[in-house]
Design a protein around this nucleic acid. Structure first.
Length: 520
RNA sequence: GGCGGAGUAGCUCAGCUGGUUAGAGCAGGGGAAUCAUAAUCCCAAGGUCGGGGGUUCAAGUCCCUCCUCCGCUACCA
């Protein structure tokens, strides 16, 4: 037997500066969809998510909250873990950068970079924004009301002058360009790749990778006045979780290099420039791919605290239900682009795609079978061309959705599935089993069989996005738990299978209190 | 300022290396059916493909130019 195909996928670790919002949920859900898809497709999957807990911003937030940094992190990290549970996220592990094993791992990679001659002590002076965790040039700042702000982001900056260790990022320019050249899909979607390539082409400056102005971080080995730059520490989480620095450990050998890091578009550079450079220096293989997803806007506006339109994942779930919420987010927004959401669009999707198209398809067929076929899968006769065409469309969707998921085109995967849904509804109308019931019961049996088989396949396909609903549908088809993977598409349902009473899976959404819905 | 992307039916978007009457989904219009969560199905309608110029037998699809929007990035004393 050959070793099972493995798939290691990660989200970015969330910064514990505040509670999770819909953007975090979006990343968690989309990564979860890919992870579940791969599991259903026969891969041994390792899905990692977690929280990023160091840095001056967290130190200050903790102070403001009157808490010790670690206690503060425990609390916020707990909220993220709760969110994952609420959203049905199937992560196999949850890493926190404050774990002892992560200190060990971060210090180990530091020593590797050092041993490779890529770290030197210098001095950094500049305008530093705690909010952005970044330095700005004098000319990038402006003074308002006697205080100085970074122009690009509008955050307040302080003059910071301190000794700092630097990483020789400048030495990696050619190697990085060679990487983008030889592995065109290392960075995706493609337009992100172009941005990164042009950024690196402009030349890379060495990177300041330590701080002395605060304490909340991983101490630099051998010079504990310094703590490591949060990004070096944070990125390392991906290898810590699978056993680094024990590169010979079973976990590390099994999972690393990661198949894909799913991240937000705002941190593509850290993952496709700094991270591969660190790994090259440390002599660790690079992740295979990095995918930067887009952001969600609410009715055309960026989510922000000051606008007051920050949507809590729990609110949206409470209003629309978990699976409809997951479906909406995955279907409405092309994965990799920004998306806009509003209550109108959500309701439209839920009622149109879920209740009317798929939900009603299942309900019209299953209730018909319950009433007219003795609540069991009918015995089919010979298939007509129409039957074969629909069955072929359903079966043929599998390679199509696989291809879409290779590019992380989750929205197009769903589109492909829904093309089958539409075809199935057309088939039902054309075959009109309610007429056949009177004229040709044998033919009716065949038609119903085909419908049930197609619904079974659809139920299997939707599981990555809507695990609960897929399961509910498969329960109604009396499908045992061990025949719900993509491999089971090929084995049609057995005639004679006794079916439980049908039950609507996707109810229509009706606003309880019009105007009070979550997204406005 | 540089690099890149985008401007196609009311809305969201497909349209690969140029080639018959420019497509889909949704909304809107008409009709059919009644198994079903009043869901479904069919039909028609709807676009000077951002403006202008050019290449070509032929351009949404190539070239030039202008306008608008977006992303990345750099930056003027």
């Amino acid at each position: 037997m050959t070793a099972p195909k493995t798939f290691y996928i990660t989200t970015a670790i969330s910064y514990v500066n505040g509670p999770p919002h819909l953007g975090h949920a979006y990343e968690a859900i989309s990564t979860d969809v890919i992870a579940r898809f791969k599991r259903l497709d026969g891969y041994d999957v390792h899905f990692l998510t977690g929280t990023d807990e160091h840095g001056q911003k967290v130190e200050r937030s903790a102070q403001k909250a009157g808490k010790a940094p670690k206690a503060f992190c425990d609390e916020i990290s707990g909220l993220f873990q709760q969110m994952d549970r609420d959203l049905g996220i199937s992560n196999d592990d949850f890493i926190r950068t404050t774990e002892p094993k992560h200190y060990r791992s971060s210090q180990a990679i530091w020593r590797k970079l050092e041993a490779n001659g890529d770290i030197y002590l210098g001095k950094y002076a500049g305008w530093y924004s705690v909010r952005d965790e970044a330095f700005y040039g004098e000319d990038e700042t402006e003074i308002r009301d006697g205080r100085r702000f970074a122009r690009p982001t509008g955050t307040e900056v302080d003059w910071v002058e301190e000794p700092s260790y630097f990483f020789r990022l400048s030495a990696y320019q050619d190697k990085l360009l060679a990487l983008y050249e030889s592995q065109p899909d290392f960075v995706s979607p493609p337009h992100r790749r172009n941005e990164i390539v042009s950024f690196v082409r402009q030349g890379l400056a060495d990177l300041s990778i330590s701080r002395t102005s605060f304490k909340w971080g991983v101490p630099v080995p051998g010079d504990e006045k310094h703590i490591m730059y949060v990004w070096l520490d944070a990125l390392t989480n991906y290898i810590t979780a699978v056993g680094y620095p024990d590169v010979e450990s079973p976990a590390f050998r099994k999972w690393w290099p990661a198949d894909v890091h799913i991240i937000g578009k705002d941190i593509v550079r850290f993952h496709t420039v700094y991270w591969p450079a660190f790994l090259m220096s440390a002599g660790v293989p690079l992740p295979k791919r990095v995918f930067g997803h887009g952001f969600l806007n609410i009715k055309g506006q960026k989510m922000s605290k000051s606008v007051g339109n920050v949507l809590a994942p729990a609110e949206m779930k409470a209003e629309f239900g978990l699976d409809p919420m997951r479906y909406f987010l995955m279907r409405e927004v092309p994965y990799g682009s920004d998306g806009d959401i509003s209550t109108d669009v959500i309701v439209h999707r839920i009622n149109g795609d879920l209740a009317n198209d798929l939900g009603n398809l299942a309900q019209r067929v299953l209730s018909f079978v319950a009433k007219n076929a003795g609540s069991a899968v009918p015995q089919p006769g010979p298939f007509t061309a129409d039957d074969e065409a629909l069955l072929a469309a359903a079966r043929g969707a599998l390679p199509a959705i696989r291809a879409e998921m290779e590019d992380f085109a989750i929205h197009r995967m769903l589109e492909a599935i829904w093309r089958v849904v539409a075809e199935a509804n057309r088939y039902v109308d054309k075959q009109a089993p309610w007429t056949l019931r009177k004229t040709d019961p044998a033919r009716m049996a065949t038609v119903l069989y085909v419908c049930i088989e197609v619904i079974r396949q659809l139920a299997i396909y939707i599981q990555p996005v809507m695990p609960g609903s897929g399961a509910k549908l498969l329960d109604q088809l009396a499908a045992p738990a061990d025949v719900r993977a993509f491999a089971d598409i090929a084995t049609p349902i057995a005639a004679g299978t006794k079916l439980p009473p049908p039950q609507a899976v996707f109810p229509r959404y009706v606003a309880a209190d019009p105007g009070a819905a979550a997204a406005g």
